[in-house]
Design a protein around this nucleic acid. Structure first.
Lengths: 152, 152
DNA sequence: GATGAAACGTTCATGAC
DNA sequence: GTCATGAACGTTTCATC
């Protein structure tokens, strides 16, 4: 039931409690209580506007693999990542590379500058970049009844 | 000014128009008109709840590079990608691989199954996967005054 | 412990300016 | 762009199971 409520809020964060209640068979106040509880529990971390980056000038994106010098800590990488505002997502990964970054920029020149800036971090040995040609999919998670995520 | 409004809505989609107006120096109805216009223009595509995937059971994620047979079209890849609900984002890229997928799963076994399913698509020659060890950053885009994106 | 219904203050949405 | 108005919504309180 909480999954259905979350699903409704992912589909549209401005859905009223009354409408959600109608969908799941609860009253508006019951839904609100559950949403409040889900927020406190950390399942729902907030409500945000979904934005088309291209419409705001962020037309270019790239993925950058980071190869770091013999055991750089994830914490160190995390601190460095926070220094570059164009990095929208980052994680440490298995495989040859140590970390994978997702960056957004205004154009190719901007991408180049960002990569250069990242490459100049002390712990970075080398980088390997893939420019995004066309985005096929980018979706928030939606829960299905069977428990598998689905495209909104 | 539209950027500031969008920034406020990204930070919290439930911020009232009055509060946003206070921040940007406008009346509530003026803010609403701009938001309506931004939605029609496609800059804002919707409002969604931000969810902690781990709190809902999606504890494992991976990035999968797709190597396709000599000129598979992006459209074909896009159609295939839509068939696998665990793929939350996908794009075609420059470099050795043809596409990069981001998948979310409940556990490692689930990841394995998904990769196997994707690899069995007709146009896929081989895949190369990186399991995510720890996520360092994952943020919606926030606009700065100078026009660069920033972590929320 | 969770729910439904009603009461109250706030916010949205609209039209006139 | 602002201001004013009626309708809709969020939030709290209270009784109930």
């Amino acid at each position: 039931m909480d999954r259905d409520i979350i699903g409704a809020l992912i589909a549209d964060a401005r859905t009223t409690y009354a409408v959600i209640g109608q969908q799941v068979g609860l009253s508006a106040s019951a839904v609100k209580r559950r949403v409040d509880r889900l927020r406190e529990a950390g399942a729902i971390t907030g409500f945000t506007a979904r934005v088309e980056p291209a419409a705001l000038g962020w037309t270019t994106e790239a993925y950058v693999e980071l190869y770091c010098r013999g055991k750089t800590s994830p914490v160190e990488i995390g601190r460095a990542v926070a220094r570059h505002p164009e990095i929208v997502s980052a994680c440490t990964v298995t495989g040859e590379a140590d970390a994978l970054l997702h960056i957004r920029a205004t154009d190719m020149r901007h991408v180049e500058q960002v990569i250069e800036r990242i490459a100049s971090e002390a712990f970075v040995v080398r980088t390997k970049s893939s420019i995004v040609l066309s985005r096929l999919l980018d979706t928030p998670l939606v829960m299905e009844r069977n428990g598998s995520p689905r495209i909104a």
